[in-house]
Write a protein that binds this DNA or RNA. Structure first.
Lengths: 210, 210
DNA sequence: TTAAAAATCCCTATAAATAGGGATGTAATC
DNA sequence: GATTACATCCCTATTTATAGGGATTTTTAA
């Protein structure tokens, strides 16, 4: 099989590892490497790419946004996500953004090849590690099912994580302290958190805030 | 130059990338790969190794402890650390543990080769990214200089992030509530955080807790 | 062995968060 | 026109965290 690959990955060593694996396995394939989202888009505009290996943690952009952008402009390209993070929320976010596979970075080479074959056929693929994560029954404490926040709640959550008190949040948003307290109560309920500490942890771990 | 390398790295792709770089650059060198600290020690007991490329985030053990153990048993081996984390505290911990170089995982291949040449001569080496971090004046908010926590503090920080109150932490660790409060005060000071929310955020963002 | 560092404990107060209620206006959706 | 979601606001009371001190013992390292 001959493909045109694009590896979007800012770690040269990792890019090199994937590159070698791809050219060793799929002889005569082309394999481009981009260290940033910007460079990736430049390459995509100049070359016809079949499959993208996308590191979702890039320095210059957000993985899911880049994924959406690529799939909008080049809907035929298959995108395989590579990530150090295996949280369900990340996986869901990327798959919703149009990715065809999600691999954990500790995946074996054989899994990567299998993923490529699978997405080429039009199917989706998850590495075994990720499948384990996805199959874990959601209980309130494992961050697998994320609460849906309103705009205001997200706003307040960010300020809470920055260490602002209810009064400070109120002043900043020109609302009363009572309102800030109410939103915070709702956040605790939605996340099923015992207190602010757990709330911030869950919010960060789930990727709902940076 | 011919070396005997040992790559201690649990991500096959990364290990593969380093492996290729090493055997391409140092022809006829031997290059072993161990995916865990345990396997690494097994290889070290059976082979004479010159240089170790050590990923400090291993599944089965702590990077600095492994480093100390290796340097104790095999003092002649040069250890080059590879890490995704560039925080000053990590770097200092590893260098104190006997490492000869500290490279960030986004280091260019040329830097890795330079590091090998340098440690072979008996000198220490830091990748440019790390040098920037080390030269950055520590200001409390930029995470480049992370507080160095004691074991007990880390333990308490984890429990705080899980939403436990001082009393609950005290009960869990069989200490008085006052002690838990004291540790927490010190955590706030070390992180320069205004309150628990910011503390948890900074701790998670810096990777000091998961 | 001696000095630091870490872990332990205590005090007084104040500030802030949490728990449990409930209420109102507005905008969008059906 | 009714319903629903959202954002806003208020009350009382309790629990927890924080700020400012300080002190003792055990461990570790020089």
């Amino acid at each position: 099989m001959i493909f045109k690959f694009l590896i979007i990955e800012d770690h040269p060593i990792v890019a090199e590892g994937i590159h070698n694996l791809l050219v060793d396995t799929f002889k005569d394939s082309d394999c481009f490497i981009a260290a940033s989202g910007k460079k990736a888009l430049a390459i995509l505009n100049g070359h016809t790419i079949d499959i993208i290996m996308l590191d979702i943690n890039l320095p210059d952009c957000n993985g899911s946004d880049l994924c959406v952008e690529i799939k909008t402009k080049f809907p035929l390209i298959k995108i395989i996500c590579l990530s150090s993070y295996g949280q369900r929320s990340y996986v869901e976010k990327m798959m919703n953004a149009g990715a065809s596979a999600y691999l954990h970075k500790n995946a074996e080479p054989a899994e990567i090849i299998e993923a490529i074959d699978t997405v080429f056929k039009g199917d989706t693929y998850y590495s075994s590690f990720i499948k384990d994560v996805m199959n874990t029954k959601s209980d309130s404490k494992n961050h697998s099912s994320l609460p849906l926040l309103t705009g205001r709640e997200t706003q307040i959550l960010i300020l809470v994580a920055e260490g602002l008190t209810n009064q400070e949040i109120a002043d900043k948003l020109f609302i009363s302290q009572q309102t800030a307290i109410s939103h915070r109560k709702n956040l605790l309920i939605k996340f099923n958190a015992r207190n602010t500490a757990e709330l911030v942890k869950l919010a960060l771990q789930s990727g709902l805030i940076g």
